[in-house]
Design a protein around this nucleic acid. Structure first.
Lengths: 155, 155
DNA sequence: CTAATTTCAGTCAAACTGACATAC
DNA sequence: CGTATGTCAGTTCGACTGAAATTA
């Protein structure tokens, strides 16, 4: 049996973990984009809103670290989310460099819609895998991420 | 133990297969880019050269299908590869719409260098996984790819 | 002075869309 | 005619670099 070929293409390529990962992620990304586009949103919105929902209000730089989104991206995403009244940006009185970002009720509501959407996408993506395989995939990807997060120092 | 958390971040996000996949692929992509940049190349070059090496000369559209690279991308990549004398573009006498692309000796040589590079990267990426886990990861990704290639009709 | 925070402007790789001339 | 091929121009998403102003 050996390494699966995943359709067609040069074996030199299709046997590579990096290629399989890239192709699968591209596909997943397509599904995610479509799913979010259906509710007029993007991946970044979900990531930021989910971060706010689970960790509570925070400054933009803390948000960047928690969400894994690059600090320079945060500004624009927040501009948009604030314009839609999904978050509130208020200056931090304790440290005037900072803004404190808070999730609004509308934002929480929107997040629920995105949540429903993204869960549909998981099903789509993982359709051909049974529960054990899904868990195993998550485990393996988790190990890789943990390892590389540590060595690179994303913490 | 449950689904691995993969560092930090909102559970709503970090438990998602799409997120794990995206993050891991981003990391892998970083490693690949760095590796290829070290020999003055990019991922596309390797993909196209490998495709030519394994399947032999072909038209640009066939190359696109075989490599999984979007047809409109092929043009520019080939422009570059031809300028470096890694491939030759000759008009097809049988069908004057087509160019036949051929790998040169220099191209084959360059491909060897890229091959060495990309294999180093695999090791880097998969370092925390034992051989069985690596095979399992490849298998699972392969299943996903096969499934989605079929339904979308990339063939 | 150094360091952190936010912001702006721009780059980049990969993938894509739409249009078009040419040839089949 | 409709379709396939190659080309060009432009867009998108996610991620990044570099620089700057403000404040700690």
């Amino acid at each position: 049996m050996e390494a699966t070929t995943a359709g067609v293409g040069p074996a030199r390529l299709t046997g590579l973990a990096t290629w399989l990962l890239g192709q699968t992620a591209a596909h997943a990304g397509r599904l995610v984009s479509e799913g979010f586009a259906a509710v007029g949103a993007r991946g970044y919105h979900f990531r930021l809103l989910a971060t706010l929902d689970e960790f509570g209000p925070a400054s933009q730089s803390v948000l960047a670290r928690r969400s894994g989104i690059h600090p320079t991206e945060i500004v624009g995403i927040l501009d948009y989310l604030a314009s839609r009244k999904f978050v509130e940006r208020t200056p931090d009185s304790a440290d005037r460099r900072r803004n404190i970002i808070t999730l609004t009720d509308a934002g929480r509501h929107h997040l629920d819609a995105l949540d429903a959407q993204i869960n549909k996408v998981q099903e789509d993506l993982l359709a051909p895998l049974n529960p054990a395989d899904r868990a195993e995939l998550r485990r393996l990807l988790g190990v890789l991420l943990d390892h590389h997060n540590k060595s690179v120092g994303t913490a």
